[in-house]
Design a protein around this nucleic acid. Sequence first.
DNA 1: ACCTGAACACCGTTCAAGT
DNA 2: ACCTGAACACCGTTCAAGT
Lengths: 231, 231
Amino acid sequence: MAQQTGTARRTPLSRERVLRAAVAFADRGGIEALSMRGLAQELDVVPMALYKHVANKEQLLDGMVDMIVGEIAPADGGDGWKAAVRGRVLSARAVLLRHPWAPRVIESRTAPTPGVLGYLDSVIGMLRAGGLSADLAHHAMHALGSRVWGFTQELFPSPPVADPQDRAEALGALSAHYPNIAEIVAARPHEPGSVVGGGCDDRFEFEFALDLLLDGIERLHRSAWSSTPQS
Amino acid sequence: MAQQTGTARRTPLSRERVLRAAVAFADRGGIEALSMRGLAQELDVVPMALYKHVANKEQLLDGMVDMIVGEIAPADGGDGWKAAVRGRVLSARAVLLRHPWAPRVIESRTAPTPGVLGYLDSVIGMLRAGGLSADLAHHAMHALGSRVWGFTQELFPSPPVADPQDRAEALGALSAHYPNIAEIVAARPHEPGSVVGGGCDDRFEFEFALDLLLDGIERLHRSAWSSTPQS
DNA sequence: ACCTGAACACCGTTCAAGT
DNA sequence: ACCTGAACACCGTTCAAGT
């Protein structure tokens, strides 16, 4: 009675419904707010009811990752492997922008889920279809690293300093101890549209590094690079 | 009395001693085992005693990061910016191999500590000393991302499958659903020295991607690249 | 003034008692 | 057989009572 308000029965729980609610919960309140107890309350259910559909919290997180990996746009052919991989990765990035908690959760997984393996397999397939050797494709995947999921580990979140005067003061304090950082921050172009809260242009930085890597991989491919050098 | 066994007074607590113990604790038992209560017990002290030296657990983690950043070898001049940055980053990697918990903690920081800023500033300084523009140095730092700390986000930890027969079976199961992954795993060279537990050669993968990025940055530098294209 | 035991408000998960 | 309340073994941190 404490859990069921009113007399109408709720939609019965299912793994699907649990996972969907968990994703929505994390989207709204952040991953650190997501608890089994809190999620149960959200679903108007006793905490232990969740354990009928997920073995434990780790498996809940696994399921959440699989769910959002499913949101990544499927591969489309044409335009060559480089454009295809680029497009797919940028699609993954768009997904992660909707689920800011996902990078941290992806990082914390200890074993790959089927959805994760399927996505990786399909990206490798795009490289192979483009003629890259298994060897180069392998190292290319490692080099791309978390970028195939659409995120990079930022060095640190740049603090949003909105007020111009605060900004000037912070810059002064910075340059006293960290002149090189201060120089970079000062030189940063400041277009209000593309830059959020005075930070760097995440999209630009992401594509800059992605293209640096894809161009380098393409160069190696053209020169028939191999990790075990031919004699 | 419950905390102090015997009559001899322990070395008095200090921030230094707390941080050092926390690092040792995480090195030994992993970061998820590190709790304020457990750390206090390790130091033979009542939990609340820690709060004299760190404001809370977040500040404890900040201090731990600063402590290991201090272990990174200082910059040495000569050999050009590329070799200098490369050497410094590989030194950072050596530090992180001693502290496997550090990547996850570094990622979870919400504001940079002085030690972190100092390290970043010095790496930027190396790029600038090599003649790179502030603009290029800025984007280069973003592109390197967590690699300047000596780690990359692995896609997922490759499960160590020691037994050759298990390995063959796992490969068969893999190829049924994920042919491209299976191909790469099968093609993987298998030198017992460099490869731990059947996984990839982490050192090779790290240097492969690092050099891809450094070479790309060098190429942009030589061509006087700018993020705001000259008309 | 300093230190610290107990308490608070949480966790994830086990388990036995209820239907 | 299924479901679930209570309990267990933890957390980080507050706070008031002790010295």
